[in-house]
Design a protein around this nucleic acid. Sequence first.
RNA 1: GGCCCGUUCGUCUAAUGGUUAGGACGCAAGGUUCUCAUCCUUGAAACAGGGGUUCGAUUCCCCUACGGGCUACCA
Length: 493
Amino acid sequence: MTKKIRGRLAPSPTGFLHIGNLRTALFGYLTIKSMGGDYILRIEDTDDKRFVPGAIEKLVDVLEWSGIKFDESPLLSGPYAPYVQSERKEIYKKHIDELLQKDGAYHCFCSSERLDKMREEQQANKKPPRYDRQCRNLNPEEVSKKIASGEPFVIRQKMPLDGEVKCFDELRGEITVNAQELDDHVLIKSNGMPTYQFANIVDDHLMEITHVTRGEEWIPSFPKNVLLYTAFGWDVPKFIHLPVVLNKEGGGKLSKRQGDVSVEEFREKGYLSDALINFIVLLGWHPEGDDEILSMEELIKKFDHKKISSSPAVFDVEKLNYFNGYYIRRMDLDKLTEMAMPYLKENVDKTSDTRKKSPDFIKQAVKIEQERLKKLSDIKEYTEFLFLDKLEYPKEMLIWKKQEAGDCKYNLITIRNILEKIASEEWTKENIENKILQYLNDNALKAGDFLWPTRVALTGKQQSPGPFDVAFVLGREESLEKIQIAIDALNVL
RNA sequence: GGCCCGUUCGUCUAAUGGUUAGGACGCAAGGUUCUCAUCCUUGAAACAGGGGUUCGAUUCCCCUACGGGCUACCA
């Protein structure tokens, strides 16, 4: 029987999920799900400074919105509970005792002052800062005595003194380091809590994780982690070190300084989770073939973790915008209207016209802007003119190119006369369009001379949906009224 | 400083020991009833540099440059 595939996301509970974390989560999820395994959430809160109340719920909420669901988590629980490291202290205690017994670790009583000074000197002498292993060879009696007297201590991992350490990354292949490069890093802090370097490895083993996905910032400690598995006599899971996501400007890890990086912010601005996921998965991975539009379902089918790129990717919001617009254009209108509603509310509240507060009107408003939206929040600005009782625009805007003001006015009158002949029951986009175009066609008139002024009269904007769409949505009465206002304005000019 | 990881159009990337080095976003031009957007067509745009190995390297190896990471009782 083959072992069940299991992976995990192991964030610290800061309550803040940024794009880089989401990608790590996604690649982990897809790696595991593409092989039919279980994906679990484990909270790594061994550093109490990082804890933010409510963070776990928030994290799970955003992740679920993104389409990443866990099979086990602190909220769901499961056979390997608890899933929060601060609740697993006994487990770490038991295992560090075991490791001590196996001579894989030792107590260290060095004060932080001494360590600081030591590092300073090492750096001054151009030597790599590393623990000088002063406590590594204390005799057991001495250690017991110091512990008994209440002297504070940490527990360090005992690294080999020489030779090479080889470890294997699924993306990069074999990584070899000289054992002398390895620091005896701390496994248990003086407050009794484990460090990441200990808790993470113990838990991954205990929770039977088969594929470890984590950021490439962990590569330097990778050999030490492998050594820890070996010291316990445990099998080493497969390791996949994911490349980082970089800022567009100036390089460096994606950071808050350079615009939005929080998944929550993207969500609030009206980025669709499908688009975000589709965009992010392409940052370091590519399906076979040229089709880049993929749903989560398809991703799970097609994903191959061995094909993840080992070089870092730059986050470029332009392409995200394209994907988001693409997904919005393909959305069902009812669904889109529902999702756009929060962003439209302000416009709807502003109008005194009860007709414009109706679901049907709102739906039509969304419909004529659908293909223009890059993100849902655009809808507010784009549809504002539809809800305004009175349009404000300079009269000159009505005039198309080199048109004479008088001609412009005359043309608007012509349009008004055409529209007046359309009865309320026949007020459809197609009718409006056909009647106007037919007239222009029959009289060999240039469309721009008529359509531009009409559109401006109806929208008050340089850029907007076409006049037929707008006239239809606004309705017969209001359209005629707005055109008349424009005609009157041109009188004064 | 030391150690580690990386380097194909501006960006995300594909492919390959022999190709006109492919696609996507963006950009430019043209077309589709006025603008914007959509949609369609076309175009410009890349193998970091230097050595090897080889009949032949973008592809394999080495060096350099550049970018990034780590160097905590943070993860």
